[in-house]
């Protein structure tokens, strides 16, 4: 059961801000990796292009369509992974999964603002969509 506080925790002002003003949405010049993820049940999409240099993410571009949670999560993820190596990203993805499943309460990062999603099981896949797009890009 959810209560009004849960709704506030889900739609934090910062989350809505990332939804309205997604970061890193401009195209980049020389992407080395591209990926996408689509949720066939709701049609939400996240597309990601990254430029890897010396093992780290130098530049990235994220675009998509969908609900506030999927798009805000993509924007927040983009801010978090900039400059990180593929290995660090794998670690982040695991931590984020743990945050969503409720097995961890914090990942000590800005992504914590999304932890209200875990009270809404059907919305967890929205929050994870960007991470599958990223995984798709890194394994391309």
């Amino acid at each position: 059961m959810t209560d009004p506080a849960d709704l506030d925790a889900l739609y934090r002002e910062i989350v809505l801000d990332h939804h309205r003003n997604p970061r890193n949405s401009d195209a980049i010049d020389a992407p080395t990796h591209e990926g996408e993820a689509i949720n066939p049940f709701c049609g939400d999409e996240v597309h990601i292009k990254i430029q890897l240099q010396d093992g780290g993410i130098k530049e990235l571009s994220i675009t998509g369509v969908g609900c506030s949670i999927s798009q805000a999560s993509a924007s927040l993820m983009g801010e978090e992974i900039k400059g990180k190596t593929a290995e660090q990203i794998t670690g982040l993805a695991e931590q984020f999964n743990a945050l969503m499943s409720g097995s961890a309460d914090s990942m000590q990062s800005d992504l914590d603002v999304l932890k209200g999603v875990k009270r809404y099981p059907v919305r967890i896949k929205c929050a994870l969509l960007a991470w599958s797009a990223l995984d798709d890009a890194l394994s391309s």
């Binding site: 959810t2 209560d3 009004p4 709704l7 969908g66 609900c67 506030s68 949670i69 919305r123 929205c126």
Partner: peptide, 10 residues
């Protein structure tokens, strides 16, 4: 619509 749905469900 999904966000509308979540708010209505609450």
């Amino acid at each position: 619509p999904h966000d509308v749905g979540t708010v209505l469900d609450s």
